[in-house]
Protein backbone atom coordinates (compact mmCIF):
# COMPACT_ATOMS: atom_id res chain seq x y z
CA UNK A 1 0.00 0.00 0.00
CA UNK A 2 0.98 3.58 -0.58
CA UNK A 3 2.66 5.27 2.38
CA UNK A 4 2.06 8.78 3.71
CA UNK A 5 3.53 10.82 6.48
CA UNK A 6 1.31 12.68 8.95
CA UNK A 7 1.28 15.95 7.02
CA UNK A 8 0.33 14.17 3.82
CA UNK A 9 -2.38 12.15 5.53
CA UNK A 10 -3.93 15.25 7.10
CA UNK A 11 -3.74 17.10 3.82
CA UNK A 12 -5.46 14.25 2.04
CA UNK A 13 -8.22 14.11 4.64
CA UNK A 14 -8.88 17.83 4.24
CA UNK A 15 -8.79 17.66 0.47
CA UNK A 16 -11.14 14.69 0.31
CA UNK A 17 -13.63 16.19 2.74
CA UNK A 18 -13.59 19.49 0.86
CA UNK A 19 -14.31 17.64 -2.38
CA UNK A 20 -17.00 15.59 -0.70
CA UNK A 21 -18.79 18.44 1.09
CA UNK A 22 -18.90 22.00 -0.22
CA UNK A 23 -19.73 23.25 3.27
CA UNK A 24 -16.23 22.47 4.53
CA UNK A 25 -14.02 25.56 4.56
CA UNK A 26 -10.57 26.26 6.01
CA UNK A 27 -9.81 29.33 8.10
CA UNK A 28 -6.49 30.33 9.65
CA UNK A 29 -3.21 32.14 9.39
CA UNK A 30 -1.07 31.44 6.33
CA UNK A 31 -3.25 28.48 5.35
CA UNK A 32 -3.76 29.60 1.75
CA UNK A 33 -0.96 31.08 -0.29
CA UNK A 34 1.67 29.69 2.09
CA UNK A 35 -0.05 26.33 2.55
CA UNK A 36 0.04 26.28 6.36
CA UNK A 37 2.93 26.75 8.76
CA UNK A 38 3.46 22.98 8.71
CA UNK A 39 2.24 22.58 5.11
CA UNK A 40 -0.90 20.70 6.14
CA UNK A 41 -3.14 22.85 3.92
CA UNK A 42 -0.71 22.80 1.01
CA UNK A 43 -2.42 23.08 -2.38
CA UNK A 44 -5.94 23.54 -1.02
CA UNK A 45 -6.22 27.19 -2.03
CA UNK A 46 -5.19 26.22 -5.55
CA UNK A 47 -7.82 23.52 -5.76
CA UNK A 48 -10.70 25.14 -3.89
CA UNK A 49 -10.16 28.88 -4.20
CA UNK A 50 -10.27 31.72 -1.68
CA UNK A 51 -13.91 31.23 -0.68
CA UNK A 52 -13.06 27.82 0.72
CA UNK A 53 -9.59 28.62 2.09
CA UNK A 54 -9.44 31.84 4.10
CA UNK A 55 -6.05 33.36 4.85
CA UNK A 56 -6.72 35.44 7.95
CA UNK A 57 -4.90 38.26 9.65
CA UNK A 58 -3.36 37.47 13.05
CA UNK A 59 -6.68 37.61 14.84
CA UNK A 60 -7.23 34.34 16.69
CA UNK A 61 -10.23 35.47 18.71
CA UNK A 62 -11.75 37.06 15.64
CA UNK A 63 -11.36 34.17 13.22
CA UNK A 64 -12.41 31.66 15.84
CA UNK A 65 -15.62 33.66 16.31
CA UNK A 66 -16.07 33.87 12.56
CA UNK A 67 -15.75 30.10 12.32
CA UNK A 68 -18.42 29.71 14.98
CA UNK A 69 -20.76 32.10 13.18
CA UNK A 70 -20.18 30.17 9.98
CA UNK A 71 -20.81 26.85 11.73
CA UNK A 72 -24.10 28.18 13.11
CA UNK A 73 -25.28 29.12 9.64
CA UNK A 74 -24.59 26.12 7.47
CA UNK A 75 -20.83 25.77 6.96
CA UNK A 76 -18.41 23.27 8.51
CA UNK A 77 -15.22 25.21 9.19
CA UNK A 78 -11.85 23.68 9.91
CA UNK A 79 -9.85 26.29 11.81
CA UNK A 80 -6.07 26.08 11.88
CA UNK A 81 -4.11 27.57 14.75
CA UNK A 82 -0.47 27.99 13.90
CA UNK A 83 0.59 26.65 17.30
CA UNK A 84 -1.62 25.22 20.04
CA UNK A 85 -0.25 27.84 22.44
CA UNK A 86 -2.14 30.46 20.43
CA UNK A 87 -5.46 28.83 21.28
CA UNK A 88 -5.31 30.88 24.46
CA UNK A 89 -5.82 34.03 22.41
CA UNK A 90 -9.18 32.61 21.38
CA UNK A 91 -10.15 30.97 24.64
CA UNK A 92 -13.38 32.94 25.07
CA UNK A 93 -14.69 31.97 21.67
CA UNK A 94 -13.72 28.32 22.10
CA UNK A 95 -14.81 27.77 25.67
CA UNK A 96 -17.57 30.29 26.31
CA UNK A 97 -19.07 30.18 22.84
CA UNK A 98 -18.31 27.10 20.73
CA UNK A 99 -18.55 24.61 23.57
CA UNK A 100 -21.61 26.13 25.24
CA UNK A 101 -23.86 27.17 22.38
CA UNK A 102 -25.56 23.82 21.86
CA UNK A 103 -26.59 23.61 25.48
CA UNK A 104 -27.48 27.29 25.82
CA UNK A 105 -29.71 27.03 22.75
CA UNK A 106 -31.53 24.07 24.20
CA UNK A 107 -30.43 21.92 21.28
CA UNK A 108 -31.64 24.34 18.60
CA UNK A 109 -28.24 24.22 16.98
CA UNK A 110 -24.99 22.28 16.86
CA UNK A 111 -21.58 23.81 16.32
CA UNK A 112 -19.92 21.61 13.70
CA UNK A 113 -16.35 22.80 13.50
CA UNK A 114 -12.84 21.46 13.88
CA UNK A 115 -9.96 23.31 15.48
CA UNK A 116 -6.59 21.95 14.35
CA UNK A 117 -3.53 22.87 16.37
CA UNK A 118 0.07 21.63 16.40
CA UNK A 119 1.56 21.08 19.82
CA UNK A 120 4.42 19.40 21.64
CA UNK A 121 7.86 20.37 22.84
CA UNK A 122 10.30 20.82 19.96
CA UNK A 123 12.96 23.17 21.24
CA UNK A 124 11.04 26.38 20.62
CA UNK A 125 10.71 27.55 24.22
CA UNK A 126 7.73 27.97 26.50
CA UNK A 127 5.33 29.76 24.13
CA UNK A 128 5.54 27.27 21.28
CA UNK A 129 5.82 23.97 23.13
CA UNK A 130 2.94 23.38 25.45
CA UNK A 131 0.58 20.42 25.32
CA UNK A 132 -2.89 21.79 25.86
CA UNK A 133 -5.28 18.82 25.83
CA UNK A 134 -6.27 18.97 29.49
CA UNK A 135 -7.55 22.54 29.18
CA UNK A 136 -10.08 21.32 26.67
CA UNK A 137 -10.90 17.98 28.28
CA UNK A 138 -11.95 20.24 31.12
CA UNK A 139 -14.43 21.97 28.81
CA UNK A 140 -17.70 20.08 28.48
CA UNK A 141 -19.29 20.51 25.07
CA UNK A 142 -16.32 19.70 22.89
CA UNK A 143 -14.30 16.67 21.83
CA UNK A 144 -10.55 16.23 21.95
CA UNK A 145 -8.68 14.17 19.36
CA UNK A 146 -4.96 13.43 19.47
CA UNK A 147 -3.63 11.06 16.81
CA UNK A 148 -0.25 9.32 16.84
CA UNK A 149 0.01 7.90 13.31
CA UNK A 150 -0.78 9.05 9.78
CA UNK A 151 -3.38 6.29 9.39
CA UNK A 152 -5.19 7.37 12.55
CA UNK A 153 -4.82 11.04 11.68
CA UNK A 154 -6.60 10.71 8.35
CA UNK A 155 -9.52 8.67 9.65
CA UNK A 156 -9.91 10.75 12.79
CA UNK A 157 -9.80 14.05 10.92
CA UNK A 158 -12.49 12.89 8.53
CA UNK A 159 -14.65 11.84 11.50
CA UNK A 160 -13.96 15.13 13.24
CA UNK A 161 -15.08 17.12 10.21
CA UNK A 162 -18.25 15.03 9.96
CA UNK A 163 -18.97 15.38 13.68
CA UNK A 164 -21.68 17.82 14.73
CA UNK A 165 -19.69 19.20 17.67
CA UNK A 166 -16.67 21.42 18.15
CA UNK A 167 -13.67 19.10 17.95
CA UNK A 168 -10.16 20.04 18.99
CA UNK A 169 -7.68 18.12 16.83
CA UNK A 170 -4.17 18.18 18.27
CA UNK A 171 -1.24 17.31 16.06
CA UNK A 172 2.20 16.62 17.47
CA UNK A 173 4.87 18.60 15.67
CA UNK A 174 7.43 15.79 15.98
CA UNK A 175 5.04 13.37 14.30
CA UNK A 176 4.38 15.48 11.22
CA UNK A 177 7.01 13.65 9.26
CA UNK A 178 10.30 15.29 10.04
CA UNK A 179 11.54 18.52 11.49
CA UNK A 180 9.03 21.18 10.47
CA UNK A 181 8.13 22.71 8.16
CA UNK A 182 6.96 20.33 5.65
CA UNK A 183 7.59 16.80 6.60
CA UNK A 184 10.14 14.55 5.00
CA UNK A 185 11.80 11.22 5.15
CA UNK A 186 13.61 11.19 8.46
CA UNK A 187 11.87 10.74 11.82
CA UNK A 188 12.15 13.77 14.08
CA UNK A 189 12.33 11.73 17.26
CA UNK A 190 14.44 8.65 17.86
CA UNK A 191 11.44 6.76 19.21
CA UNK A 192 9.53 7.20 15.96
CA UNK A 193 10.47 4.12 14.00
CA UNK A 194 9.14 5.28 10.65
CA UNK A 195 7.66 8.30 8.94
CA UNK A 196 5.61 6.68 6.20
CA UNK A 197 2.59 4.59 7.13
CA UNK A 198 0.15 2.63 5.02
CA UNK A 199 -2.77 4.94 4.45
CA UNK A 200 -5.65 3.91 2.21
CA UNK A 201 -6.33 6.30 -0.61
CA UNK A 202 -10.09 6.29 -0.20
CA UNK A 203 -11.68 8.33 2.60
CA UNK A 204 -12.40 6.39 5.80
CA UNK A 205 -13.64 7.26 9.27
CA UNK A 206 -12.18 6.21 12.59
CA UNK A 207 -14.96 6.77 15.11
CA UNK A 208 -14.24 9.30 17.84
CA UNK A 209 -14.13 7.38 21.12
CA UNK A 210 -12.40 4.25 19.86
CA UNK A 211 -8.98 3.46 21.31
CA UNK A 212 -6.37 1.46 19.43
CA UNK A 213 -4.20 -1.22 20.96
CA UNK A 214 -0.83 -0.39 19.44
CA UNK A 215 0.90 -3.38 21.01
CA UNK A 216 -0.62 -6.30 22.90
CA UNK A 217 0.79 -7.56 26.14
CA UNK A 218 -0.34 -9.03 29.43
CA UNK A 219 1.89 -7.59 32.14
CA UNK A 220 1.20 -3.84 32.16
CA UNK A 221 -1.22 -1.51 30.40
CA UNK A 222 0.46 1.66 29.14
CA UNK A 223 -1.96 4.36 28.06
CA UNK A 224 -0.25 6.99 25.95
CA UNK A 225 -1.04 9.65 23.37
CA UNK A 226 0.70 11.34 20.44
CA UNK A 227 4.51 11.24 20.65
CA UNK A 228 4.29 9.33 23.92
CA UNK A 229 2.75 6.38 22.08
CA UNK A 230 6.00 6.03 20.15
CA UNK A 231 8.21 6.43 23.21
CA UNK A 232 6.09 3.83 24.99
CA UNK A 233 6.29 1.43 22.05
CA UNK A 234 10.03 1.85 21.94
CA UNK A 235 10.24 1.07 25.66
CA UNK A 236 7.90 -1.87 25.23
CA UNK A 237 9.99 -3.36 22.41
CA UNK A 238 13.06 -3.36 24.65
CA UNK A 239 11.18 -4.81 27.62
CA UNK A 240 9.88 -7.57 25.38
CA UNK A 241 13.46 -8.68 24.87
CA UNK A 242 13.52 -9.25 28.62
CA UNK A 243 10.31 -11.21 28.42
CA UNK A 244 8.01 -8.44 29.67
CA UNK A 245 4.99 -8.01 27.43
CA UNK A 246 3.59 -4.52 27.72
CA UNK A 247 0.22 -3.54 26.26
CA UNK A 248 0.31 -0.03 24.73
CA UNK A 249 -3.05 1.62 24.15
CA UNK A 250 -3.59 4.88 22.34
CA UNK A 251 -7.01 6.29 23.27
CA UNK A 252 -6.77 8.48 20.13
CA UNK A 253 -9.58 10.63 21.51
CA UNK A 254 -9.48 11.90 25.08
CA UNK A 255 -13.09 13.09 24.84
CA UNK A 256 -14.94 10.86 24.37
CA UNK A 257 -12.76 8.26 26.08
CA UNK A 258 -12.95 4.58 25.15
CA UNK A 259 -13.42 3.38 28.70
CA UNK A 260 -14.30 -0.11 27.53
CA UNK A 261 -11.01 -0.84 25.82
CA UNK A 262 -8.97 0.68 28.66
CA UNK A 263 -10.95 -1.19 31.24
CA UNK A 264 -10.66 -4.55 29.45
CA UNK A 265 -6.90 -4.15 29.25
CA UNK A 266 -6.45 -3.21 32.91
CA UNK A 267 -8.68 -6.09 34.01
CA UNK A 268 -6.25 -8.31 32.12
CA UNK A 269 -2.91 -6.79 33.21
CA UNK A 270 -3.86 -5.43 36.66
CA UNK A 271 -1.30 -2.67 36.24
CA UNK A 272 -1.45 0.71 34.55
CA UNK A 273 1.02 3.41 33.53
CA UNK A 274 -0.24 6.61 31.94
CA UNK A 275 2.11 8.58 29.74
CA UNK A 276 1.28 12.07 28.56
CA UNK A 277 3.24 15.07 27.40
CA UNK A 278 1.03 17.59 29.16
CA UNK A 279 1.89 18.54 32.73
CA UNK A 280 1.01 16.17 35.53
CA UNK A 281 -0.98 18.61 37.69
CA UNK A 282 -4.68 18.42 36.78
CA UNK A 283 -3.60 16.90 33.50
CA UNK A 284 -4.48 13.95 31.28
CA UNK A 285 -2.63 11.48 33.47
CA UNK A 286 -4.27 12.77 36.65
CA UNK A 287 -7.68 12.44 35.07
CA UNK A 288 -7.09 8.92 33.79
CA UNK A 289 -5.54 7.82 37.08
CA UNK A 290 -8.56 9.11 38.90
CA UNK A 291 -10.89 7.31 36.54
CA UNK A 292 -8.96 4.05 36.88
CA UNK A 293 -8.82 4.11 40.65
CA UNK A 294 -12.48 5.03 40.87
CA UNK A 295 -13.63 2.28 38.54
CA UNK A 296 -11.03 -0.48 38.48
CA UNK A 297 -9.55 -0.38 41.97
CA UNK A 298 -10.39 -4.02 42.65
CA UNK A 299 -8.47 -5.16 39.60
CA UNK A 300 -5.27 -3.28 40.37
CA UNK A 301 -2.22 -5.04 41.80
CA UNK A 302 -0.21 -1.83 42.05
CA UNK A 303 -0.84 1.89 42.28
CA UNK A 304 -1.35 3.60 38.93
CA UNK A 305 1.79 5.37 37.79
CA UNK A 306 1.73 8.68 35.90
CA UNK A 307 4.50 9.79 33.58
CA UNK A 308 3.89 13.36 32.52
CA UNK A 309 5.63 16.67 31.98
CA UNK A 310 6.94 18.47 35.03
CA UNK A 311 4.82 21.31 36.35
CA UNK A 312 6.76 24.11 34.74
CA UNK A 313 6.66 26.32 31.67
CA UNK A 314 8.80 24.49 29.14
CA UNK A 315 12.37 25.79 29.18
CA UNK A 316 14.25 26.47 25.96
CA UNK A 317 17.62 24.82 26.59
CA UNK A 318 17.49 21.33 25.06
CA UNK A 319 18.89 19.72 28.17
CA UNK A 320 16.25 21.36 30.36
CA UNK A 321 13.42 20.64 27.93
CA UNK A 322 14.46 17.01 27.93
CA UNK A 323 14.39 16.94 31.70
CA UNK A 324 10.85 18.27 31.74
CA UNK A 325 9.26 16.15 28.99
CA UNK A 326 8.77 12.40 29.56
CA UNK A 327 11.55 10.36 28.00
CA UNK A 328 11.63 6.69 27.12
CA UNK A 329 13.73 5.99 30.20
CA UNK A 330 11.03 7.54 32.44
CA UNK A 331 8.46 5.23 30.89
CA UNK A 332 10.65 2.16 31.30
CA UNK A 333 11.29 3.07 34.91
CA UNK A 334 7.59 3.54 35.63
CA UNK A 335 6.80 0.17 34.09
CA UNK A 336 9.43 -1.52 36.28
CA UNK A 337 7.98 0.24 39.26
CA UNK A 338 4.41 -0.98 38.77
CA UNK A 339 5.76 -4.44 38.09
CA UNK A 340 7.69 -4.52 41.33
CA UNK A 341 4.86 -3.07 43.47
CA UNK A 342 2.60 -5.76 44.82
Amino acid sequence: MRQLNMVEALNEALRQEMRHDARVIIIGEDVGVFGGAFHVTHGLLEEFGPERVWDTPISEEGFMGIAIGAALTGLRPVVEFQYADFLFSAMDQIINQAAKIRLMSGGQTNVPLVIRAPQGATGRGAQHSQSVEAWFMHTPGMKVVIPSTPYDAKGLLISAIRDENPVLFLEHKLLYGAASPGGGAAPADSSVSKVGYDVPEEPYEIPLGKADIKRSGNRVTVIATALMVHRSLSAAAKLAQQGIEVEVIDPRTLVPLDEETLSASIRKTHRAVIVSEDVSRAGVSAELASWISGNLFDYLDAPVKCVAAKNTPIPFAPAAEKAVIPQESDITQAIWQVLSDQ
Binding site: I25, E51, R52, W54, E61, G62, F63, M64, G65, I66, A67, I68, G69, A70, A71, L72, T73, G74, L75, D92, Q93, N96, Q97, I101, M104, S105
Partner: peptide
Protein backbone atom coordinates in the same frame (compact mmCIF):
# COMPACT_ATOMS: atom_id res chain seq x y z
CA UNK B 1 -31.56 35.17 16.07
CA UNK B 2 -28.19 33.46 16.57
CA UNK B 3 -27.82 34.29 20.20
CA UNK B 4 -27.54 36.74 23.01
CA UNK B 5 -23.91 36.51 24.09
CA UNK B 6 -23.34 37.43 27.69
CA UNK B 7 -19.59 37.69 27.29
CA UNK B 8 -19.29 41.31 26.28
CA UNK B 9 -18.21 41.59 22.64
CA UNK B 10 -18.34 37.87 21.87
CA UNK B 11 -21.23 38.09 19.44
CA UNK B 12 -19.43 40.52 17.15
CA UNK B 13 -17.10 38.08 15.35
CA UNK B 14 -19.88 35.49 15.35
CA UNK B 15 -22.06 37.85 13.32
CA UNK B 16 -19.16 38.35 10.94
CA UNK B 17 -18.97 34.55 10.61
CA UNK B 18 -22.65 34.42 9.71
CA UNK B 19 -21.97 37.08 7.09
CA UNK B 20 -19.03 35.08 5.73
CA UNK B 21 -21.30 32.07 5.57
CA UNK B 22 -23.96 34.04 3.68
CA UNK B 23 -21.30 35.23 1.27
CA UNK B 24 -19.86 31.75 0.65
CA UNK B 25 -23.33 30.25 0.22
Amino acid sequence: MLGAFAIVGAGIPIAVGAALSAYVQ
